[in-house]
């Protein structure tokens, strides 16, 4: 039952950024995460996929403690996640997260959304925070929207602001929880382009997504989850060409069919 043994021989990353060891989680009686073992090295891009309800969102939300795991260990950027608030806040400073529903702060302008955490958490002077914010807005290609409110932007623009907001904290790791699932088709590409650029810059990324083109382009490893467990993991090339498990094959045939 040890997935760790399966992983360790073929890839032993230089610096481990995220380590999940035998992680379990229950919602009441429902066993949502079963014996999750995952190692993510610095600069690695992990793409997590699987049918809905398979626990993939829950898994990445455990990495920054939006969900609490009940068994096993999670070590992020060298800090172990316990109920110690200091540890949780330290990890959250190093881990950025992008949500399916963007979750921008609607009462603040784009620029204020971007500078809020750097000013209040990183204690940056306002001017410096704004410079950083403008730099990242430039990178996600919407510098002209700085003074608008989130409600005035399109979905794709909002998601790019959300990515920039996370980047302004200069995180070591970025988590993406279905970042394109709530977008209209014509806006998916603009968000994926930003994510691809980020990946090429060497960011450590864990992405829950069904964008298989993105997975092929930047993914170092595919993780397939079903019913709360990691069923299969492999480099994208092998994962798509020769999936080992029957469940993976079925899932791939469903999402690649059309």
């Amino acid at each position: 039952m040890s997935n760790a043994a399966e992983v360790l021989p073929d890839r032993m990353p230089a610096q481990i950024m995220i380590e999940m060891q035998a992680v379990h989680k229950w919602y009441g009686e429902f066993h949502v995460l079963k014996d999750i073992n995952l190692v993510v090295g610095r600069g690695e891009k992990i793409v997590v996929c699987g049918p809905s309800g398979s626990g993939k969102s829950t898994m990445i939300r455990c990495i920054n403690r939006l969900e609490e795991h009940q068994q096993g260990r999670i070590i992020v950027a060298g800090i172990e996640l316990t109920s110690d608030l200091k540890h949780i806040e330290a990890i959250r400073r190093e881990v950025g997260m992008v949500f399916q529903q963007f979750n921008l702060f609607p009462h603040l302008t784009v620029l204020e959304n971007l500078t809020l955490a750097p000013i209040w958490v990183r204690k940056l002077p306002k001017k410096e925070a704004e410079e950083t914010a403008r730099y990242y807005l430039e990178r996600v290609k919407i510098p002209e929207q700085a003074n608008k409110y989130p409600g005035q932007l399109s979905g794709g623009q909002q998601q790019r602001v959300a990515i920039a907001r996370s980047l302004c904290m200069k995180p070591e790791i970025m988590l993406f929880d279905e970042p394109t699932s709530a977008l209209d088709p014509e806006m998916i590409k603009e968000v994926l382009d930003v994510m691809i650029e980020l990946a090429q810059d060497g960011m450590t990324m864990v992405c829950v997504t069904h964008e298989m083109g993105f997975a092929r382009t930047v993914g170092d490893m595919m993780v397939f989850m079903d019913r709360g467990e990691i069923v299969e993991r492999a480099p994208p090339k092998d994962f798509f060409a020769s999936p080992k498990s029957e469940r993976t094959r079925l899932f791939l045939s469903q999402i690649l069919a059309h």
């Binding site: 920054n64 881990v95 950025g96 949500f99 809020l116 955490a117 907001r165």
Partner: peptide, 8 residues
């Protein structure tokens, strides 16, 4: 969640 994820 977004505020938490930013470490506020």
């Amino acid at each position: 969640e977004a505020a938490d994820a930013l470490g506020l």
